[in-house]
């Protein structure tokens, strides 16, 4: 199982559009991905309800885990999404 901790770059946190983009990416990656805020309980990263309800804000640290053939590559891509600011 691969794991990665990153800091949220989106100025409005992991809400609305960034949450949608992230969930879409997690869901289409084919891997089983979880997301946890700080040391909290992980949620299914393919669940927009799970991701939104974490209440992740700008600057929060989140931990990603992935299981699957290309888990490392999947986490690289998702981590990149999380550190980028998608809000205009």
């Amino acid at each position: 199982m691969a794991e990665r901790t990153v800091r949220i770059g989106s100025s409005h946190g992991l809400h609305a559009r960034p949450a949608k983009l992230f969930t879409q990416a997690a869901s289409s990656s084919g891997a089983s991905v979880t997301l946890a805020k700080g040391s909290g309980k992980p949620v299914n990263a393919a669940s927009i309800l799970g991701v939104i309800s974490l209440g992740v804000d700008h600057g929060d640290y989140v931990t990603l885990t992935a299981d699957g053939d290309n888990a490392e590559q999947v986490l690289d891509d998702l981590a990149e999404l999380l550190v980028t600011d998608h809000d205009e």
């Binding site: 609305a16 559009r17 949450a19 949608k20 969930t23 879409q24 949620v43 299914n44 393919a46 669940s47 927009i48 309800l49 799970g50």
Partner: peptide, 16 residues
């Protein structure tokens, strides 16, 4: 569009 697409994803959410 973003609001509505997010709502569509809620309808098919795995946790739901």
């Amino acid at each position: 569009r973003d609001v509505l697409e997010a709502q569509a994803m809620m309808a098919e959410d795995p946790m739901l």
